[in-house]
C-alpha cells in the first residue's frame, strides 16, 4: 500500500493540474491569467500580435490570448500536458503547439514575436535556466515587444518575508500532492529581468504579494 501511495505521488499528474492550480491560488489563477493576456496584447490593438508562450501546460493562458485575437506559439515539454491543451483548444486559427522545453526558444528566429508570456512556469526553473530563457526571450522580441510573466514570488515586505516559510510549507506540500511537482517562488525576478536587458513596465500582486504579474520591455 505504501508503495502505491508513493508511486501515485511520483506520477506526474496533468489531469489534476488545473484543479490544483485553482486551489493553490485560492481561485485567483483565472483573473491573473486574464490580466497577463491583457497586458501582453494591449500594445497591439491594430493587428493580431504574435505571442510566444513558454510552458503552456493545459492551455489556460493560451485560451485567454486567443480570446484577444493573438496568434500564439505555445511550448510545453510534456506531451501529456500538450494533449490536454490540444483537446481544450483544438486547432484554433493562429495557434501552434510545440513539444519543446523553455530552453529551446533559441530555435526561433530573432525578433519574431510581439510578446513572450509565461504563467507559473518560471518558478519550476532553476536560476540558471531562467537566466538563459530570459536572455533568449530578449532576442526573440521585436522592438517595442513585451514580456509578461505571472508566477509565485517571495513577498517583498519584511513581515511577509518572515511569515513566508510558515505559510509556504503546507502549501508546498499540498502542491506536491495535487500537482506532483514543487515550484520555487521566485526570489527576485525584477533583478533577473534587468540582468537580461529588460525594463519593468508594470507589476501587480495578488494574495498579499504572494502571486505577481511582471510586465517588462526591452531596456534599449
Amino acid at each position: 500500500m505504501s508503495t502505491l501511495a508513493l508511486m501515485r505521488l511520483l506520477e506526474s499528474a496533468p489531469e489534476r493540474y488545473d484543479r490544483g492550480m485553482r486551489w493553490l491560488t485560492l481561485g485567483r489563477v483565472d483573473a491573473i491569467r486574464a490580466a497577463l493576456a491583457e497586458a501582453a496584447v494591449a500594445a497591439h490593438a491594430a493587428e493580431p500580435p504574435a505571442v510566444l508562450e513558454i510552458g503552456c501546460g493545459t492551455g489556460a493562458l493560451t485560451a485567454e490570448l486567443l480570446a484577444r485575437d493573438a496568434r500564439v506559439t505555445a511550448l510545453d515539454e510534456s506531451p501529456e500536458m500538450l494533449e490536454r491543451a490540444r483537446a481544450r483548444l483544438h486547432d484554433a486559427p493562429g495557434l501552434e503547439f510545440l513539444e519543446r522545453t523553455a530552453s529551446e526558444i533559441d530555435h526561433f528566429p530573432d525578433a519574431s514575436f510581439d510578446a513572450v508570456v509565461a504563467s507559473f512556469s518560471f518558478s519550476e526553473m532553476s536560476h540558471g535556466e531562467r537566466a538563459f530563457v530570459l536572455r533568449e526571450a530578449a532576442k526573440k522580441l521585436r522592438p517595442g515587444g513585451r514580456l509578461a510573466i505571472a508566477d509565485e514570488v517571495r513577498p517583498r515586505s519584511p513581515v511577509a518575508r518572515l511569515l513566508f516559510p510558515v505559510i509556504r510549507a503546507p502549501q508546498a506540500a499540498l502542491g506536491w500532492l495535487i500537482v506532483g511537482s514543487v515550484s520555487h517562488p521566485l526570489p527576485d525576478l525584477e533583478s533577473e529581468l534587468a540582468a537580461a536587458g529588460f525594463r519593468m513596465v508594470a507589476r501587480r500582486g495578488w494574495l498579499g504579494g504572494h502571486l505577481a504579474l511582471f510586465v517588462a520591455e526591452l531596456a534599449s
Partner: peptide, 10 residues
Amino acid sequence: PQVVTALKTS
C-alpha cells in the same frame, strides 16, 4: 526535456 534543458542552460 530535462537533459536538453540541462545541457543548454548549464
